[in-house]
């Protein structure tokens, strides 16, 4: 079902299982990344995103299931797989007291890139990332956004076909994040497959395909424009100058209602017109109550809190 046409899939994970002791980190996880496609993994801490990415790179062995990188099994042919993968871990992994170009040189040597190739690629990557003027600056003296760009360039020095990026833009300001994503889109246009995790919902909407992860499972998947159709109910928005009071009254009157505050607005899921009217009649006349289209974040939160999912990742009071 994942093999589409004759082109090789950049990354194929099938039925992955992984436990750490009693904790089940991945339940039967499958996903694919096509060449030229950006696939986004979104999910809370401990949902298994990093575990899935580490298994995909071949750094971590699954208990069950298979990994293929352009048809190559990284656990049987690790060297070949390594050539194909560029990996950017969540934690900044460059050498702070090496300069920009020394870091690139170091990663080139790790990947056995020849001197000739290195010089040619470094020039191209510096231009592409606009890090050129900072070639001799120490990594520790770069801004957050520039550090992340350098880490990405280090992951690209051996011209991989698949990029695995674990929360590459966390803590980076909006302008630098936008620039980083423009670079990712250009790389995808060159045919690289990209698997990226992010906590930013606005970034999820820049992916070609979104996978929502929770407790080791994929709970929702789709294109950014389609995924909001998975929202199980309808959604209404309430606007009022005294939103605190409105929220308090609604929750007192209807304790089961899920009321979420966003600044001067409330979002409430509802099932039908009758419930909509009930909520509307419970607030003052001046208050605006309107049905709205749920966003990616609303959808994610709704799918996460579906009761059929058992909370076995963190069990209370174990120690």
């Amino acid at each position: 079902m994942f093999q589409t046409g004759k082109t090789k899939v950049a990354l194929l994970l099938e039925a992955l299982e992984k436990s750490y002791g009693k904790i089940k980190a991945l339940h039967h996880l499958s996903l694919s990344v096509e060449p030229g496609q950006i696939v986004g993994l979104i999910g809370p801490d401990g949902s298994g995103k990093t575990t899935a990415m580490r298994i995909a790179t071949g750094l971590l062995t699954p208990d069950n299931g298979s990994v293929r990188i352009l048809d190559i099994d990284p656990f049987i042919r690790p060297r070949q797989a390594k050539e194909l993968i560029g990996y950017m871990p969540q934690r900044f992994s460059l050498y702070p007291d090496l300069t920009v170009s020394e870091n690139l040189r170091f990663f080139s040597d790790l990947y056995l890139v020849t001197k000739h190739d290195r010089i040619e690629r470094q020039e191209r990557l510096m231009k592409f990332s606009r890090l050129g003027p900072f070639t001799n600056r120490r990594a520790s003296k770069l801004s957050g956004g520039m550090k992340q760009k350098l880490a990405l360039m280090c992951a690209l020095i051996h011209t991989p076909s698949l990029l695995i990026l674990d929360e590459p833009t966390t803590g980076v300001d909006p302008v630098s994040r936008q620039e980083f994503w423009n670079i990712l889109r250009e790389l995808a246009e060159q045919g690289i497959g990209i698997l990226v995790s992010t906590p930013y919902m606005d970034e999820a909407s820049l992916c070609d395909n979104i996978l929502m992860m929770y407790e080791g499972r994929i709970i929702g998947t789709g294109k950014p424009e389609d995924i909001t159709t998975l929202f199980p109910d309808k959604l209404l928005e309430i606007r009022d100058i005294d939103i605190t009071e409105i929220k308090r009254k609604l929750q007192m009157k209807y304790p089961t209602l899920s009321v979420q505050r966003f600044g001067d607005k409330l979002h409430i899921p509802y099932s039908d017109e009758e419930q909509f009217e009930t909520i509307k009649s419970a607030v003052p006349d001046r208050t605006q109550v309107n049905p709205i289209k749920p966003g990616i974040e609303d959808t994610f939160v709704a799918l996460m809190s579906k009761p059929n999912i058992t909370a076995d990742y963190i069990s209370e009071e174990s120690g």
Partner: peptide
């Protein structure tokens, strides 16, 4: 100072409830 960096959407919502 950047209290929610790297935190997932559900944790962020809960955090903002506390802020309110």
């Amino acid at each position: 100072d950047e209290p929610t960096g790297g935190v997932d959407p559900v944790a962020r919502r809960e955090f903002w409830d506390l802020i309110y």
